[in-house]
């Protein structure tokens, strides 16, 4: 029964109907991240505009519902925000995921990403949730170079 709390309706929705999926032009940086333990992978592009505004996060990947839904939620949260704002969300999401289920998530910062709170209780799946978010962080750093 524990596991089903991991599969929140919102996660399943994003898995079945991923938002912003597909690689698009133009972009400032493209990264490819893999999870060698399970073979999940993602190619992710970011396009940053004036005043540090994230114009697009596009991605293509394969993997389990958690990794794919996390990428979809990331796309929704990041697009239209500033890089600075999104990195704060990434940090809070990382803190939640690495908290072994003991961390109280900050819903104001996380928005829909709070649906992944249940994943933190499953150490083997934390990397699935973080895959696209770590790729995003990497891409943002590279886009500034």
């Amino acid at each position: 029964m524990i596991g089903e709390s991991m599969y929140q309706e919102l996660i399943l929705e994003h898995y079945k109907h991923p938002q912003g999926r597909g690689l698009r032009e133009p972009y400032d940086a493209e990264v490819h991240h893999v999870n060698p333990t399970c073979g999940d992978e993602i190619t992710l592009r970011v396009k940053v505009g004036d005043a540090g505004k994230v114009l697009d996060v596009s991605y293509e990947g394969q993997g389990c519902s958690i990794s794919q839904a996390a990428a979809s939620v990331l796309h929704e949260l990041a697009t239209g925000s500033t890089v600075e704002e999104t990195l704060a969300v990434v940090d809070e999401f990382t803190r939640l995921m690495q908290g072994r289920g003991q961390v109280e998530p900050d819903e104001d910062v996380l928005g829909d990403a709070v649906a992944f709170a249940g994943v933190a209780k499953f150490p083997a799946r934390v990397k699935c949730a973080l895959l696209s978010w770590m790729a995003y962080k990497d891409a943002v750093v590279r886009s500034a170079e």
Partner: peptide
């Protein structure tokens, strides 16, 4: 349409 990790997780947890 269902990734094996999701299959394994639900089989185990439930």
């Amino acid at each position: 349409g269902i990734h094996p990790h999701d299959v394994g997780q639900i089989l185990d947890d439930r």
